[in-house]
């Protein structure tokens, strides 16, 4: 039997492919399209401490090679999540990570305090890279000192697997990842969307109320692939590669440059069954290429001729 399992922190994933935050709903929405036992897992939409109504329309603009989004972390807050959503999510056997979007250190501590009393999920992905909430969330990602203040000691608050999701739009992400590694985080999810914008020429205004939005989809793959490669050289903890994955070849590219697993966002919006589909294709590929263990693929890219 070919082994497609990977381990991140305390979590074992049956496949190295997850649905990414903001594109997997609450996981529940995936079950109509995927055999939930045949996917690696998913990361929930960002959860904030208090109810967050999100941004005005338009929230989505399709552009060449991908899309810009300005969702603005719409969710009903952590208490609603615990009461109404977590019970529906619990039944899935795949890996389940909760994406937490803190607006302050107090926020983060409260979020973990509330959630750590609950069961039925594997860990947290702390998100400081939401391009749509500049002042309260993205500022942690653009400033190493602020990030350190936010993340210091967080590891001691939970036994669960702890990931940090970072933005490709700031060089600080590399040093922040290193700090997270020192602090005992289990992995880095990289990359979030690229900060970008679009103009409505006819009306001479920005398309989005917020001016900036997050760019995702196939156009970002070469950029994120290189960023992920660089990140795997920078830290020793597992890096989960994200950005523009649409097919098995894309998955293999990320694994070969050293990502332990991948997440899929935009690709999942286009093809909601992509998690199961690519997991099966990966298995078939390993059989065909006679690769007994997924570990043989991870980081196998040759760096010299």
């Amino acid at each position: 039997m070919n082994n497609t399992k990977i381990k991140i922190g305390k979590t074992t994933l049956n496949f190295p492919i997850l649905g990414s935050s903001g594109c997997s709903g609450w996981g529940v929405e995936l079950q109509d399209f995927n055999d939930m036992d045949f996917i690696g897992g998913f990361v929930t939409k960002s959860i904030t401490l208090k109810n967050k109504i999100g941004n005005k329309q338009p929230r989505i603009k399709e552009v060449y090679g991908g899309l810009l989004n300005s969702i603005g972390l719409e969710n009903n807050g952590v208490h609603y999540f615990v009461e109404k959503i977590l019970p529906k999510m619990k039944k899935f056997k795949c890996a389940k990570f909760l994406n937490l979007a803190p607006f302050s250190r107090e926020d983060l501590l409260s979020l973990i305090d509330i959630l750590d009393k609950e069961k039925g999920f594997d860990g947290y992905e702390i998100n400081i890279s939401c391009p749509n909430i500049t002042k309260q969330n993205l500022n942690f990602n653009s400033n190493l000192l602020e990030a350190k203040k936010l993340l210091k000691g967080v590891r001691r608050l939970t036994e669960k697997t702890l990931l940090l999701k970072l933005s490709p739009s700031f060089v600080e992400s590399f040093e922040i990842a290193k700090f997270a590694e020192m602090e005992g985080f289990d992995g880095i999810s990289f990359t979030n969307t690229y900060i970008a914008t679009a103009v409505d020429v006819e009306n001479r205004k920005f398309v989005f109320d917020n001016i900036q939005a997050g760019f995702s989809g196939p156009a970002i793959k070469p950029l994120s692939l290189f960023n992920v490669y660089k990140m795997t050289k920078f830290v020793k903890i597992p890096v989960i590669g994200i950005g523009g994955i649409l097919n098995l070849n894309d998955v293999l590219e990320y694994l070969m440059v050293g990502a332990v697993g991948v997440q899929i966002g935009t690709g999942l919006l286009i093809q909601p069954n992509i998690l199961e589909k690519l997991s099966r294709e990966l298995q078939d590929y390993m059989v065909k290429e006679n690769i007994g263990d997924i570990g043989k693929i991870i980081g196998c890219v040759k760096e010299s001729l």
């Binding site: 594109c23 929230r59 909601p272």
Partner: peptide
């Protein structure tokens, strides 16, 4: 997405 995954249509 059209299937409830992204909150794009809210």
């Amino acid at each position: 997405c059209g299937v409830g995954l992204c909150n794009g249509c809210s």
